[in-house]
Amino acid sequence: MSTVWYNTRCPVYDAGIDWQRNKLLALVRAGTVEFKDINQQPDALAHFGASVDDIRRRLHATDAAGRLIVGADVAIALWLITPGEGRLAALFGNRAALPFTRFFYDRFADLLFAWNKRSGRW
């Protein structure tokens, strides 16, 4: 995991990322993981074909090799590197659970995106 892009204007994503960043403080300080606000650099992932609304809707990240990771896969990748959260990655990221994890993450992200839009958070 290299850089996680998220919407700081969404109170749910902002709180979740703040909590995650605090758990990964050593990796953040070492520069291994960065958390960036898409609202400050809306075209940051345009070369992947990701619009600012795509990133406001779902977490996006780039790994150390520069590949794009989206949605539930970002959460799983974060859990894998977060002390004490490997069991979450194993539970929700295994071959049997992953399709359901992605489906439910996407539905939640869609609802959250619509709520933020209605609330005028951008």
Rank of each mutant, 00 (worst) to 15 (best):
M1T: 14
M1Q: 09
M1F: 03
M1C: 02
S2D: 14
S2W: 03
S2L: 05
T3S: 03
T3M: 01
V4C: 00
W5A: 05
W5Q: 11
Y6L: 02
Y6G: 02
N7F: 14
T8H: 11
R9F: 06
C10H: 09
C10T: 13
P11W: 01
V12I: 15
Y13W: 12
D14A: 13
D14S: 14
A15G: 07
A15I: 09
G16R: 10
I17S: 01
W19P: 02
W19S: 01
Q20R: 12
N22E: 05
N22C: 08
K23E: 00
L24H: 04
L24A: 01
L25D: 07
A26W: 10
R29P: 11
R29D: 06
R29Y: 01
A30E: 11
G31A: 06
G31I: 15
T32V: 07
T32G: 01
D37M: 12
I38R: 09
N39R: 15
N39E: 12
Q40V: 14
Q41I: 10
P42G: 02
D43Q: 14
D43H: 13
A44V: 10
L45A: 02
A46L: 12
H47E: 01
H47C: 01
F48K: 11
A50R: 15
A50S: 14
V52D: 04
V52Q: 11
V52Y: 06
D53S: 13
D53G: 04
I55D: 01
I55T: 14
R57Q: 13
L59K: 07
H60G: 06
H60A: 10
H60D: 05
A61Y: 08
A61P: 12
A64R: 15
A65R: 15
L68P: 13
I69A: 00
V70Q: 07
V70Y: 01
G71R: 08
G71C: 09
G71W: 05
A72E: 11
D73S: 07
D73P: 12
V74T: 04
A77W: 05
L78C: 02
I81F: 00
T82H: 03
P83A: 00
P83Y: 00
G84I: 10
E85P: 04
E85G: 00
G86I: 11
R87D: 00
L88S: 05
A89S: 06
F92K: 08
F92L: 03
G93C: 03
N94D: 07
A96W: 14
L98H: 05
L98T: 06
P99E: 04
P99K: 03
P99S: 01
F100K: 12
F100Q: 07
F100C: 02
T101A: 00
R102V: 12
